[in-house]
Design a protein around this nucleic acid. Structure first.
Lengths: 171, 171, 171, 171
DNA sequence: AATGAATGAGTGTTCATTCAT
DNA sequence: CATGAATGAACACTCATTCAT
């Protein structure tokens, strides 16, 4: 809080005019970044395209957003655990919305025969969401690879999970 | 440390008869769990089978171990960041070994025409490792799904990333 | 620190609003008392009188100050050793100034034939400074003898060291 | 105590077979070094010579002993304060013996007209004892100046205090 | 005569938070 | 709106000492 106050240029005590508590501050940051990410989801939901195509578009945009807001997103995936129970519950509920959206798209694709019926939509979603969240562990905004390129790759990988493998053509 | 001492049934001060410091304790836990996990890698390295098959076997076993030791593995993926620099460096170096092993297997498969040459072995590994690490975020040892089943599913997903998708058969 | 806080009538934690650390507190006390004592030296340096006379004046005033500030001066001679290296170095350097001042006066007196050439100015200074420092071991501010009287005696003794003994007159 | 046990090559707990307490150990060290120093005093007391000559001999030998046992003597002058009250009292009483011995010799010299009657024997003793004690602050056993030379110089300075200054011969 | 294990009171220090001004 | 001062509970850690074996 001291560091925060210094950066903000006000006294540590004065922070509490704007904040309820440190926990409340963390919640507000996470809540706000969630709101921004929600816009991406809303857009993707209204695209007129097959479900896997919509999923790919959504993931690519979401991952790009994730990487462009890596600080806040790292906070999101790393620190939600430390919120006090009421705040934590709200964040967990918000996250369910993303997950359910992906799960729904996958199930729709399965029904249309565009995704393999062998996979469990919920687990596949966990797998994909987990891979994306882990970007927080190693993505370097000053690294070589542009965010868009990583996003495309990751979205491709995600889609690959949902469709069965074809035998490779002979070399 | 107080909590730890209470659980251990000794006095807080008495803990330091066995420990150098809190940091040292964390490191020892992580170091030990790494050693145990290494045995799995060593086994998988000596299997006589094609690279993707070895990778699948390895991942399945590793994930099973991960889930059966979820407490310590969660510590591993979540708390390594809080180690002091020398200890942290050692952990990071150890983790490279796992990653390099997977990267090597993928490259070998690519050379043999068993994995798609379009994917980048390093990024694909990050994707897979990230997905597995994220099991620490949601796996419930008291849940319905047995560890082995999840492990199989996750290993399958990992492999699916490496091979190109085939068009789905008509429904 | 607990004791200090109790005496100050604030909470132990509140002390750190004013202090960087315990060590910093000790240093500040020693640094301040040094500054006050320096004023005496500066005065004595500008007196227009022969060197031994200046030395006597200086010592008498310094010892008086020493006894009137016996608590802080005792800290000064006793606790400087416990400072951390950077702070300790500063204190040692400051002390050199006093010593060098005395050494210079003695050498000047020797050159003017007012002090015996047989004595080593540095060792004699150590002897005198040591005798004065040891006042911290036994001086009792509530004792009979006034500070000024002790100061005069001690300054006399110091001077006696520097001049050769005359044979006592026959009784 | 841990360091002590390590050096002694036994377990920390085992130390208490030989020791009552840490305080008791300190006392025993100080008590023993006092006993050794006492032998010097006993010798000097039986010399057949004028009082100032006996004092000079005594001081020279005592200072030599002090410097040759600088570690224990430093402990003696620095740490007696930290003894618990009963032990501290004994040490203070022992120290009185040295001081009284010196005071007696000075008074005897004054009566015989060999020392100036203007000085106070007790204060002069404090001055001399203080100067010697302060050797603990700066004497370096690996330094250039041999112990004997310093001892002679210090004994000379001590004697100079007791006799009046003669005017210096014209240069 | 010595050890290994443990105790318990204490250390200096941190930090989110409060509140009168 | 903001500050300066203070709180109080917590923190990791230390150390002389004890005692069953």
């Amino acid at each position: 809080m001291q560091e925060l106050a210094d950066t903000a240029g006000i006294d540590k005590g004065g922070l509490y005019y704007y904040l309820e508590s440190k926990d409340d501050l963390l919640f507000q940051i996470l809540d706000r970044v969630h709101d921004e990410a929600s816009a991406i989801l809303d857009e993707a939901a209204h695209i007129d395209a097959p479900p896997l195509s919509r999923l790919h578009t959504y993931l690519e945009r979401y991952i790009t957003f994730f990487l462009e807001n890596i600080d806040r997103m790292s906070l999101y995936v790393r620190e939600w655990r430390h919120l006090d129970p009421p705040h934590r519950t709200r964040i967990v509920e918000q996250r369910r919305i993303y997950e359910d959206f992906a799960v729904e798209l996958i199930r729709e694709a399965q029904q249309r025969g565009e995704a393999s019926k062998d996979i469990d939509a919920r687990y596949a979603t966990f797998f994909i969401v987990g891979a994306i969240s882990s970007l927080a562990e190693w993505y370097d905004p000053h690294g070589q690879e542009p965010a868009g390129a990583i996003a495309r790759r990751y979205a491709d990988h995600a889609l690959a999970i949902l469709t069965p493998a074809s035998p490779l053509p002979p070399a």
